[in-house]
Structures are given as structure tokens and as C-alpha cells.
Computed example of a mutant assay.
Amino acid sequence: MGNTALSPTDTGLRGTVLVLGGARSGKSRLSEAMLTALPAPWVYLATGRAWDEEMHERILHHRAERGSTGWLTVEEPLEVQTVMREHAHTPLLLDCLTLWLSNLLLEERDVQAATADFMACLAARRAPTVLVGNEVGLGIVPENRLARRFRDEAGRLHQRIARDVPRVLFVAAGLPLTLKNEVPH
């Protein structure tokens, strides 16, 4: 990972990495590796919901892959800021931003207010943080209003985070591409 590794002394936005990519691109695996390079414990903040049996199986599979050694898994689909504040001094992986956004939209929450609170919470953290998001803007224009809104909100959310954090990676075929690296050497 070279210059994308995290340091235990990274804090606030300076200690944040945004990892974007498509489905099954390897972004979660890379993100987990960045965090586990630090001393345990680590918080895995999962935003997915088991809406059906297949998704339930996926969640179980991800838990088993990660194992329990060192990880504290917290499943929170909406109030991610609460978890981030409760674990402000523990390295944290939020997987994923786009599922969090989906949950906000489906619950008809105020996305702009949630994003503003999220950014304030992120800046106040005292431990390294890795944020995972699905890049959904590379495909076709969605055919329905909700899907188009989701795509637009995801793009805005990722841009806002990318503007403020020092490191942004894009992952394709398991390979990370550094989009931004403003970490002092």
C-alpha cells in the first residue's frame, strides 16, 4: 500500500482515507488491510441491512471472512455518526457510505443535514478512519427518479468527503489507484 498506509497518530480528517470502487472491486479488502496494519482493536461499522435472505447470507459471509480477532463489528444503518463518536479513539472502517445513503433515502431523512453532521463528526475523530463507497456514476443513467437521486446524492457525498480528506483511492480489479494523497512525507 505504500504511502496509503495509516498511522496510529493520524487524527481527524488528516487520518481519513476514502476508498471508492465498483462492486467486487476489492475496495473492502484493501480497506480492511489498511486498518489491520494498525494495532487492534478496530471498529467495523457496517451499514448494510438484511432486506432478504440473500443479503443476510452476504452479511454472515463478510463477518466470517473478517473473523472476530481484533474487530468490533457494529451494525448501524442510519446513525453512523453516533457510532463514530462513541469510538472516536479507535481505528474505524465504515463500509459503506452508499448503503448508508440508501438507508437515509429510504427512510426519507434529510441527506444534507446528515452529511453535514457526518463531516463534523469525521473532523472530530481522534483515530484513523477508512470510508468505503461504491462509485455509481460510471454507468448508465438510471431509469427512475429515486435511482437518479441516489446516483446524484452519492456523487455529491463522495465529492464532499474527497475534497476534505487527504487521501482518496479508487480500486478496480483489486488494484488501488491513488486519486489524492496530501499526506506530508
Rank of each mutant, 00 (worst) to 15 (best):
M34T: 04
L131P: 02
R63M: 12
P8Q: 09
R163C: 12
R14A: 15
P39N: 11
T98D: 07
T115V: 09
G15Q: 02
R156S: 04
H61W: 09
R125M: 10
Q81E: 15
L30Y: 04
A124N: 02
A23C: 13
A40K: 10
F118N: 05
V83T: 15
G2W: 04
I161S: 08
L157N: 01
K180Q: 08
L45N: 10
D164W: 00
R160K: 12
L175E: 03
I161T: 06
M119G: 03
Y44E: 06
L60G: 12
S25P: 04
P176C: 12
K180G: 09
A5L: 13
N3H: 14
A40N: 04
S7H: 10
L38M: 13
R24L: 09
P39T: 12
L92K: 07
M1E: 02
V132E: 08
M34I: 13
V171Q: 05
A127P: 11
L6C: 10
E86G: 06
E75K: 11
P142E: 10
G48K: 05
F150E: 10
S31H: 11
E153L: 12
P128M: 11
E75H: 08
E79S: 13
R148G: 07
R63V: 14
V17T: 15
R66F: 05
H56K: 15
R151G: 06
G155F: 10
P176K: 11
V165T: 11
I161C: 04
R149G: 07
G48I: 00
L60R: 15
R163E: 15
A5S: 14
R29E: 14
T47H: 11
H61L: 14
G21P: 06
M84W: 04
N134L: 12
N3F: 10
T98R: 05
V165H: 04
T90V: 15
D10R: 01
G137P: 04
C96I: 11
A46R: 02
L146H: 00
I161Q: 07
W42H: 13
R145I: 08
V141H: 01
L146S: 09
V74F: 04
A37M: 01
T11G: 11
L131T: 09
R63S: 13
R49N: 05
L35C: 11
F170A: 13
A50K: 03
L18G: 02
E53S: 12
F150Q: 12
D152G: 02
A127E: 09
V136G: 11
A113I: 01
G137K: 02
P142N: 06
W51P: 00
I59Y: 02
E54V: 03
L157M: 14
H62Y: 10
E108Y: 01
L94F: 05
V83Q: 06
